[in-house]
Design a protein around this nucleic acid. Structure first.
Length: 281
DNA sequence: ATGTCACGTACGACGTGA
């Protein structure tokens, strides 16, 4: 394959939406999908629908909350559940450590190292969940920076629901978000830290405007009152392969949509063993 | 015109998370 289409999508329960998700994968010819908020354990995951459509699946799900997965037409290699140093949260376990939630899964597909991430929401400024969010992002940046140093030349991307709107134009109203999470300076600094260790938002360059999430409440989608909080952050080696990007706004329409839509990039590996390439030369 | 949805528990309706 000379071109690989990679996407990220917070599906908000895969059991509720497996039909929509697999239909879109096939219809849009997606090769690799990182999913967030699958909201299930492995034994509850609808593997069959993915396998029948030609996708392998690797996932990390502990309970009805959070949960991340990767689906891919090519084999999924070197799966890693959670990143080194990821902080836990909640009631301490018998050994005194905090439970680490199911928010990160990494794998290599076609020589590309990718992570599907569901960043903690934060709830309210000053809430323990907010401090947890910032700590989680800090540890993610440190872990990512170390990995990039140790693996030069490997195309690498973090993708998922970051629960941060980096720009004022990434929310429908800065007045509405004044004093709330997702737009605070510490959250934006945490997002910038990911860029400072060597990652770039490979979608923003090609799609400067557009939301990726609209709350189910208050007619947010019909009014286009959304947020841009889902991103694909690529290393330089990854970014150099990107030839196209899009936000699939149509996936917020119709029956029983997720509140998020897919974010997509195409990677071009140049002339190669592309079965689909017409033999006209 | 529309004013939220998904999960678990447990079989109606509420608590939790987003």
């Amino acid at each position: 394959m000379a071109v690989m289409r990679i996407a990220t999508w917070n599906v908000n329960s895969i059991r509720t939406r497996v039909g929509r998700v697999v239909d879109w994968l096939v219809r849009d010819d997606v090769d690799v999908l990182g999913m967030q908020e699958i909201k299930c354990k492995p034994e509850q995951f609808p593997y069959e629908a993915f396998e029948q459509a030609g996708y392998h699946v690797e996932l990390h799900g502990l309970n009805q909350w959070n949960g991340v997965a990767i689906a891919s037409r090519e084999p999924i290699e070197d799966v890693e559940v959670g990143f080194p140093g990821a902080p836990g949260f909640g009631k301490p376990l018998p050994d005194g450590t905090l439970p680490v939630e199911a928010r990160a899964i990494g794998a290599t597909v076609g020589g590309v190292r990718i992570w599907s991430l569901y960043v903690p929401n934060g709830r309210e400024l000053g809430d323990p969940h907010y401090d947890y969010k910032l700590d989680w992002l800090d540890k993610l940046a440190v872990s990512t920076g170390a990995w990039l140093q140790a693996n030069p030349g490997v195309p690498f991307a973090l993708m998922g629901d970051f629960n941060i709107a980096p720009l004022d134009t990434d929310v429908w109203s800065m007045d509405f978000f004044a004093g709330r999470t997702h737009v605070s300076e510490p959250e934006r600094a945490a997002f910038a830290q990911l860029q400072s260790v060597g990652l770039v938002d490979v979608v923003r360059e090609r799609v400067p405007q557009g939301f990726t999430y609209w709350d189910y409440q208050q007619l947010r989608f019909p009014r286009n009152e959304g947020m841009r909080i889902d991103f694909i952050l690529g290393s330089r080696d990854f970014a150099d392969l990107v030839v196209d990007a899009k936000i699939e706004r149509n996936e917020r329409k119709g029956t029983a949509p997720s509140d998020h839509v897919p974010v997509v990039v195409d990677l071009d590996f140049g002339p190669g063993d592309d079965d689909d390439r017409p033999m006209i030369f």
